[in-house]
Design a protein around this nucleic acid. Structure first.
Lengths: 193, 193
DNA sequence: ACTCGTTTATGACTTGGTACTAATAGTAAT
DNA sequence: ATTACTATTAGTACCAAGTCATAAACGAGT
């Protein structure tokens, strides 16, 4: 005999989770019940119809967010560097760096490029970001090349080095930020351990 | 007079690429032509219908998701999420995330964790960081576990969503930031006509 | 025999289309 | 002016994959 309703619903839920792109018709066949039964089941389980499921998967932000960010190699290539003064790096926005739906680059990649450039420009074994203020001026699209220019601007009252970074695509500013950097050398204030 | 056919088709293609989840009806209105014209255009341009477009996006993203599941430790794991309210994620600082010399975590990883949590907490198809102010309160060392807590704080004067994120290691605050997020905010709410 | 939970059937309606045919408007060539 | 042609609009039939509501049939248990 067929399984109980509860059992079928358990399996149904599983099945839909595994292969969300399945029609009621198909489900009815695999569970050897009528389409109407499947639909009743879905209603009881509050499982939306196929099209809504597809849409959900398509628009779901979660997946995008959890998606891999190979952070270490995304920070761009340094093409010019004058220690304690200025630095320039290039970051090509590849498909890995964007939201797949709209091809817009995720913000933290631009941040990472700028931040790592700020670290690099400082002539010290150790430079750490203490604070930063950044602005994402316009979206950057897949395929664009971001040129980040960092300039050391001096020290603040706590003798942290101030680095200004401006990033451009085709001379249009897309990102700017100021980074306040700890240094180990001249600056003491050895932080905690 | 209206634009030429060629021009309209160029714009049509663009529009659909930008916002693939748009019906022919909506397109007809925005281009001030009949639905049939839009359909002729799509045929000539070999652009599939809405459902196929959604499906395409969904399947792509689904694959990404499957991939992401094996690399979920990269920007942290979301362990709690209440859309439009708050979210919590955990990031274990592994050796990949630190400066090799001193085992201190690179700033942009903390930023990435916080930023992506800010994106995730927003209940919208599209959320982008417009601006942020962050503070790195103390260094994080290899082996430590960073818990980031995001809270949606409302909207600013430009109706960007404000998300505050604070990150802790053992109840000690190591990072804090405020993110101002763009939202697309379009459909989903409208039903009546 | 009657009732209850479950299952199946049926019909009307919905969305966002495809496929096809036909009519109309506007422009250019002869 | 007539013809030719393109572009656009209109209308019909049909489809997939549903929703919603109603009704009927089945299978047991007490």
């Amino acid at each position: 005999m067929r399984k109980t309703k509860v059992e079928r619903q358990r399996l149904l839920k599983e099945k839909i989770e595994q292969t969300p792109f399945i029609t009621d018709e198909h489900l009815a066949k695999t569970f050897q019940v009528s389409i109407q039964t499947i639909r009743l089941d879905r209603m009881e389980l509050a499982i939306p119809e196929l099209r809504e499921r597809i849409k959900y998967v398509a628009t779901n932000q979660w997946n995008e967010t959890v998606k891999a960010l190979s952070l270490d190699e995304v920070i761009g290539e340094i093409i010019d560097l004058e220690l304690d003064k200025r630095a320039i790096s290039i970051l090509d926005i590849t498909s890995d760096l964007v939201f797949s739906r709209n091809k817009i680059a995720r913000g933290h990649h631009l941040f990472a490029q700028a931040n790592s450039l700020a670290v690099a420009v400082i002539n010290d074994e150790l430079a750490l970001t203490a604070k930063s203020e950044v602005k994402f001026r316009r979206q950057v699209i897949e395929g664009e090349r971001v040129i980040a220019k960092a300039a050391v601007e001096g020290k603040d009252e706590k003798s942290r080095t101030i680095v200004a970074v401006h990033s451009y695509v085709d001379n249009e500013k897309v990102f700017s930020g100021v980074f306040y950097m700890y240094q180990s050398n001249e600056n003491k204030g050895e932080k905690n351990k």
